[in-house]
């Protein structure tokens, strides 16, 4: 019983923490819409895995990574507006997911737990995946901090000044896709994008440095995950929704403490 609860707490904390680490970068690079789209695109990956009876997480991860890189490539090569490209892939993936699910006749698919997340469904092996993901996120952001900083500021100028933009952007997209897929079971398709945005916008109201905002964002997410889990325990409410609502409350509170830039 207690192992089961610890596992669920860990799932809530680790998934919120990982998404929050990426949150300031996703927000600054204005790819938060990409985060939302990838979570929906994952639905087609899940459906494909179920239909072909493949490993669900690995198939979804490969599918989402391929689509994320395709969006990035199409936007850069064909000068399509990224928002348009994302919308095309989002709609097509959802349509594909629905068709694939309906092809799997007689299969009862627990859609709700994927849409809204369920930390109680997370298995021990998924906890290990979440731990590895959090460590990879920490390593990537710490190692490429300088590069990510300038890439988020202005990709064209970053490239001009010698930032390996293609390499860092590709790793960023792969890790973003991995974050969405691996946290999906705990955070949910619908709610994962909120956890990619809210911690960062709250942090930016409180601190004016990227490194501090990443730390602040992670702290907010841990606080919201702990509070969200406690609320769901006491009030028997869904954990994912509690976490998102608490993060929103923190955002509202942060508006009261908003720091202004120093004036010249």
């Amino acid at each position: 019983m207690y192992n089961f609860i610890y596992q669920a707490i860990l799932a809530a904390l680790l998934s919120s923490f990982s998404l929050a680490l990426f949150s300031p970068l996703v927000t600054l690079r204005q790819v938060s819409y990409m985060g939302e789209a990838l979570s929906h695109i994952a639905f087609a990956g899940i459906a494909l895995a179920l239909l072909l009876e493949l490993n669900l997480q690995l198939t979804t991860l490969i599918f989402v990574v391929i689509v994320a890189l395709a969006i990035s490539w199409l936007s850069q090569k064909h000068k399509l507006q990224e928002a348009n490209t994302i919308t095309i892939f989002l709609s097509v993936s959802m349509a594909l997911g629905i068709i694939l699910i309906s092809l799997k006749k007689g299969y009862s698919f627990d859609l709700e737990s994927y849409l809204f997340g369920n930390v109680l469904m997370v298995s021990p092996s998924e906890i290990y995946q979440l731990i590895v993901l959090a460590l990879l996120d920490i390593f990537f952001i710490s190692f490429f901090y300088k590069e990510l900083f300038y890439l988020s500021y202005n990709a064209e100028m970053a490239k001009f000044y010698g930032v390996p933009v293609k390499l860092v952007n590709t790793i960023f997209m792969i890790l973003l896709a991995a974050n969405i897929v691996i946290t999906l079971r705990a955070a949910g398709i619908i709610l994962v994008s909120a956890q990619l945005i809210l911690p960062a916008v709250t942090a930016f109201n409180l601190v004016k440095r990227l490194d501090y905002s990443i730390l602040c964002s992670a702290f907010i997410a841990i606080l919201a995950a702990s509070g969200g889990f406690a609320l769901s325990w006491w009030l028997d409410l869904p954990t994912g929704a509690n976490i998102v609502l608490l993060e929103f409350v923190f955002y509202l509170i942060s508006l009261l403490f908003m720091t202004r830039p120093k004036t010249a």
Partner: peptide, 23 residues
């Protein structure tokens, strides 16, 4: 982005990125 959390010093340092190894 006018709200980008960068100082003048950090933007000037961008001019030296090429002199450093990635990471």
């Amino acid at each position: 982005n006018r709200n980008f959390p960068a100082t003048a010093m950090e933007i000037v340092l961008m001019g030296l990125v090429r002199e450093l190894h990635p990471g």
